[in-house]
């Protein structure tokens, strides 16, 4: 029964993705006519080739990989350290810190002050603009703190007795015991980094810093813009305005751009499900 329910959900969610896959391997006309529900009526590699023929995308992939790896590692480590610090019930001003941090989740000054800030500290058009502002996330910190505070006190005290310092305890005890939440948050971070295009759009003008997601965003935004103008009747011929890629080429781009990050999940999954409690207590 449970398996049946899950199977149905699985089919629905998978189908949405499958539809994109079919689109990516269909001819533009077939796809537009809705002839492909399960399998491309005329299988073609043309869309994939068309996306990969654009050499800009390779540099974009490189930047995406780089920011995802560096960004995830630094952010998870930094946030985890803070979360561990915050989980200590003896910490002075703990409640104040909490409120101080949570407050920032709700109020922001908007783009312009941020722009001025980044401009002043030299983050504009700098690769670090992908890394530094994303270093700390209050939300992730709270999730990690919750998980750390579930670790039995006895375990932490035992570490103290063994003469571990704060950082040693964090590294040797807390980290292995919070594997699940670290895995989940690494996943959130990695996917967030991979999927982000807004910072590229706002804070960089160097084409060398383009990410793969930004490349995709450009492609879709362009098509949207033209569609909007067409339906408002501003221009009669879309080709006069801008080059638009067909819907199936866009699907191919979606597929190519999301594939690398999709592969990450099965690796993370292992750590998500496996409970690590038993082992560490017995040690």
């Amino acid at each position: 029964m449970i398996m049946l329910v899950l199977f149905i959900i699985c089919v629905m969610t998978f189908y949405i993705f499958w539809y994109c896959v079919v689109g990516a391997f269909s001819t533009g006309d077939d796809f537009a006519n809705g002839k492909n529900w399960l399998w491309p009526a005329n299988f073609t590699w043309a869309n994939i080739r068309s996306v990969l023929a654009d050499t800009d995308i390779y540099q974009a992939f490189f930047i995406s990989f780089l920011r995802t790896i560096i960004g995830t590692v630094t952010s998870v480590l930094f946030t985890l350290t803070v979360a561990y610090g915050m989980s200590d019930p003896t910490l002075k001003f703990r409640k104040f810190y909490s409120i101080f941090m949570i407050f920032t989740m709700f109020f922001s000054g908007g783009l312009i002050p941020t722009f001025i800030l980044y401009d002043n500290i030299g983050l504009m058009d700098n690769f670090l603009v992908y890394i530094i502002p994303a270093l700390f996330s209050v939300y992730n910190m709270i999730l990690m703190r919750t998980s750390i505070s579930e670790i039995p006190k006895a375990v932490l005290e035992a570490a103290w007795v063994d003469g571990c310092g704060k950082y040693r305890t964090l590294w040797n005890v807390v980290m292995p015991m919070s594997k699940g939440v670290i895995a989940a948050i690494s996943l959130f971070n990695a996917v967030g980094h991979w999927n982000s295009y807004y910072d590229t759009l706002m804070f960089t003008s160097d084409p060398e810093l383009q990410t793969a997601q930004f490349y995709l965003y450009n492609m879709i935004a362009k098509a949207e813009k033209v569609n909007e103008m067409l339906s408002q009747g501003i221009f009669s011929n879309p080709n006069v305005v801008m080059n638009v890629s067909s819907q199936s080429v866009r699907m191919a781009a979606v597929l190519i751009v999301s594939l690398p990050i999709l592969v990450v999940y099965p690796f993370v999954q292992k750590h998500l499900v496996k409970g690590v409690m038993i082992g560490s207590i017995k040690e």
């Binding site: 101080f100 920032t104 800030l117 910190m141």
Partner: peptide, 22 residues
């Protein structure tokens, strides 16, 4: 362990918050 985060938030969240004047 917590202070770097506070500093971080001061710079990246509290300072730009003056923008609410808008």
């Amino acid at each position: 362990m917590v202070l770097p985060a506070i500093l971080f938030l001061v710079v990246f969240s509290y300072i730009p918050m003056v923008g609410v004047v808008m």
